[in-house]
Amino acid sequence: MNKKIHLKVNTDLTASPQVLSWFEQMNQPPIPDKEIWWQCQTLLMEGFTNIVEHAHRNLPIETPIEIEAVRFEEYIEIRICCQGEPFDLEQKLRQTTEFEENDQGRGRGLKIMSTIADKLSYEPIADNRYCLFFIKYY
């Protein structure tokens, strides 16, 4: 039972409700563990927000963000593809302090994603684009 869906939105945080409602179709039939589903939604929204606020910070609002989700029997994959700058995710995670010490809010989204995701990467893809990638097992 593989299910694959795509969405293309502008670089705009007001698209967040649209992204979340689009993603709902991944939960049909419902994932038995509601906490895992909530974590998948959190990964998607943290990733989307991060792309808008950081990777696409200096780009026009019309710059597309492409999102793909694939549901397999035991896990969900999420890809958020953007036109952001090169960025060393592993190094950034090492530089970011833990939640308790992090009162300036910088990098918190990355820490949240790295804590929740079973796999997390930010890799170059075709057309000078980058892809934020997650896997979450259930």
Score class of each variant (00 low, 15 high):
Lys3His: 14
Lys4Asp: 10
Ile5Glu: 08
Ile5Tyr: 07
Leu7Ser: 06
Leu7Cys: 11
Val9Leu: 06
Val9Ala: 06
Asn10Ser: 10
Leu13Arg: 04
Ala15Asp: 02
Ser16Lys: 13
Pro17Arg: 10
Pro17Asn: 14
Leu20His: 12
Ser21Ala: 14
Trp22Gln: 02
Glu24Trp: 14
Met26Lys: 09
Asn27Arg: 13
Asn27Glu: 15
Asn27Gln: 15
Pro29Gln: 09
Asp33Phe: 11
Lys34Pro: 05
Lys34His: 07
Trp37Tyr: 10
Trp38Gln: 11
Trp38Glu: 12
Gln39Ile: 03
Gln39Thr: 02
Cys40His: 04
Cys40Tyr: 01
Cys40Asn: 01
Gln41Pro: 01
Thr42Gln: 14
Thr42Cys: 08
Leu43Phe: 06
Leu44Phe: 04
Glu46Arg: 03
Ile51Asp: 03
Val52Cys: 08
Val52Lys: 01
Glu53Gly: 13
Ala55Ser: 00
Ala55Pro: 02
Asn58Glu: 11
Glu62Ala: 12
Glu62Cys: 06
Thr63Cys: 05
Thr63Gly: 04
Ile65Thr: 01
Glu66Val: 04
Glu66Ile: 01
Ala69Leu: 04
Ala69Gln: 12
Arg71Val: 15
Phe72Asn: 15
Ile76Gly: 02
Ile76Arg: 09
Arg79Val: 01
Ile80Ser: 02
Cys82Gln: 00
Cys82Trp: 00
Gln83Gly: 10
Gly84Leu: 00
Gly84Tyr: 04
Pro86Trp: 02
Leu89Arg: 07
Glu90Lys: 07
Gln91Cys: 11
Lys92Thr: 14
Gln95Thr: 11
Thr97Arg: 03
Phe99Leu: 00
Glu100Cys: 09
Glu101Ser: 03
Asn102Gln: 05
Asn102Phe: 07
Asp103Leu: 14
Gln104Asn: 15
Arg106Pro: 11
Arg106Tyr: 15
Gly107Glu: 04
Gly109Ser: 06
Leu110Pro: 12
Leu110Met: 11
Lys111Phe: 01
Thr115Pro: 00
Ile116Tyr: 02
Ile116Ala: 02
Asp118Val: 08
Lys119Phe: 13
Leu120Asn: 01
Leu120Ala: 02
Ser121Val: 08
Tyr122Val: 06
Glu123Cys: 06
Glu123Gln: 11
Ala126Tyr: 01
Asn128Pro: 10
Cys131Thr: 05
Cys131Ala: 04
Tyr138Phe: 14
